[in-house]
Design a protein around this nucleic acid. Structure first.
Lengths: 202, 202, 202, 202
DNA sequence: TATGAATGAGCATTCATTCAT
DNA sequence: GATGAATGAATGCTCATTCAT
């Protein structure tokens, strides 16, 4: 009916300091589920369990909201990425974490889809490229600590392609094949440890 | 406005046997320009210079039209891809053609964008995955003639990622860096010719 | 796609002298099923297993087609009505036939619905009133042979209302209640036979 | 044309608390005039002198709007019907009021047409039958106060048929003929007063 | 500050009808 | 004669955004 939208105990939610954040997270959920195109004020409001007016009140426009949602995604994702490699001590561990990144099933589905949605959106809206570029740099920087800058760039691209293929493939690639591709890209020197030693030295 | 839509001498254009194809090509243009989300019956009709009713007459739904447009894209793109490698005789030529693929500026922009739009669309609509899978297999098959199947799969993923990065990068990667990444993925044996010789033997 | 509509062995159906009639009958089917409003050239064509162009070719307009279909309905229905009472010899038989008319389950559903659709259509389109009036006169004439003209008119109206209620009622009225209402409307003299004897004398 | 739709000083009409009701009444006007089939969001909006978006804002779908309009009709009509018989004290008055119901010219035209439109609509949409059934029960209850339940049901059906015939007839039936039919259906006892006396006793 | 009523632009889709073949 | 491609006008509906409260 007329815009009532989400039901539930919304009464008394005034003074909700985290409302903005909650809307952004809801927006990311909706984007992951319905695509950027299927993301509307109304869907977001319903997902966040917030009145429609609240969404338009806190964000100047839908484009603005999406941009901020993607910014939040990059921020959260970067932190997650960073943390993934925090405890990596050996080249073998590094490879395993990277393999997990590609093979990591439905757990990583949401973030992978969001990543591609962001890339596509940035293709159309140059204003979003600061986000994709920041994200790329940050990813490469993390990887570079273990591989050096050139290999990091290559690995980053390879991962991008492999993750997309993994999302679309009828049946998942085997971990072994994935590992082989990664190891090959890292180059023969990687597992000999010297490069890794240098990385730890940084 | 008001239904007349596209201008031009459209009177008497009846019985246009290639209209369907023209609409599909127009749809691909529009997708490349405005994204799948921005692709509407009206935009397509204007681009194809046909009345709105003509677009809905020839295709049962917009989703159907998009699916057929993407199918046409895969078909055309596969043929183009095939032809690109037709005259490749040496490993060096192979590498150059692949580097062109990544660096190939605005000329390749349209088809690259369309490829990613298709990937994203397939992520949302499983019915489109027959297209992405067919396309992936075909690409790998072409590459595999020069690299063997495993390396082909890796190279394919790497190219996917590099092309996306190239599309989004503020300034294009140098051809040298691109070539280095590719050569590294092909493996040291590639340029020594034996692998290529084997490929030619197939 | 695009208007092909009905499938099947339509090839070679040229020179189909009954096509007009078949289209009209299909139209009546569609009206009964989807209502006058839901009746389109395309639905009719599909139902009649005839190309779309054939429907517009044989009838100047949809309104014209509907008018002719309703005319056919009145014609067929009048004949059926006539025949229903053909073998009625006693007042008791007369009452039973009339009760059947009201209680006659799904068998009579189609014709009853069509009757009301025609009434409603005639309310909007005065051109159709020649049909409803002819139908009313004919029905009354048949009934009057057993009841006299005044009672026939009353009975006709009563039947109209009872049939509509029967169509809409959650559970059907009992035959007994229906019979009682009819008998009461016929008047006490009816079953005494003298009136009926007079009717047979006509 | 082009979205502006109805003319008039509509600027500043915001916050119109009775808008919903006004739209429903406009819908009933339109149904009476153009039939359920000819009732569109746009016609209703024009009739209610509200923008198109307002109609779709307040009602989830056109079917929903029509259902609510018909519900309002039944409600209003039931009240009117009730009031018609409020001051009836004698059997003679009762008969006159009922005769008025059938013969009541253009004044009753709108409500009669709406009644039949509702019946037809309920034939197609079972969801509307709660309305027709409620309406039937209520009508019978009012009549039964003067006639007893069985006669009330018969009279209700007779009235339904007579009103439809009156709407479609080229020239109106005479009051006398109408009265005769009603009196005959009420049965000989009615005007003798005993039945009515019983009714008053309730 | 927060909200939901309000609105105009736009969209996918249907369809009666026209017309070249 | 018959057909199906073609078309423009409508239709139901969605939605970003504005704004009175």
């Amino acid at each position: 009916m007329g815009g009532t939208g989400a039901g539930g105990a919304r009464r008394g939610r005034r003074y909700d300091p985290e409302r903005r954040t909650r809307i952004l997270d809801a927006a990311l959920d909706v984007i992951a589920e319905h695509g950027t195109a299927g993301t509307t004020h109304r869907t977001i409001a319903a997902r966040a369990d917030v009145p429609l007016g609240s969404v338009t009140y806190h964000f100047a426009s839908l484009a603005d909201l999406l941009a901020q949602a993607f910014a939040r995604y990059v921020e959260l994702q970067s932190a997650t990425f960073e943390k993934l490699f925090e405890d990596v001590a050996t080249p073998e561990q590094f490879v395993e974490v990277v393999v997990d990144l590609v093979c990591g099933g439905p757990a990583r589905h949401r973030s992978a889809v969001l990543g591609f949605e962001l890339h596509l959106a940035a293709l159309r809206d140059p204003g979003l490229r600061v986000l994709t570029q920041a994200w790329t740099w940050q990813s490469r920087a993390v990887l570079a600590r273990f591989t050096g800058p050139d290999t990091a760039a290559r690995l980053d691209a390879l991962l991008e392609g492999m993750i997309m293929h993994a999302l679309l493939a009828a049946e998942p690639e085997s971990r072994e094949a994935t590992r082989a591709a990664i190891v090959q890209t890292l180059g023969p020197a990687h597992l000999e440890g010297d490069r890794h030693a240098r990385a730890r030295g940084i």
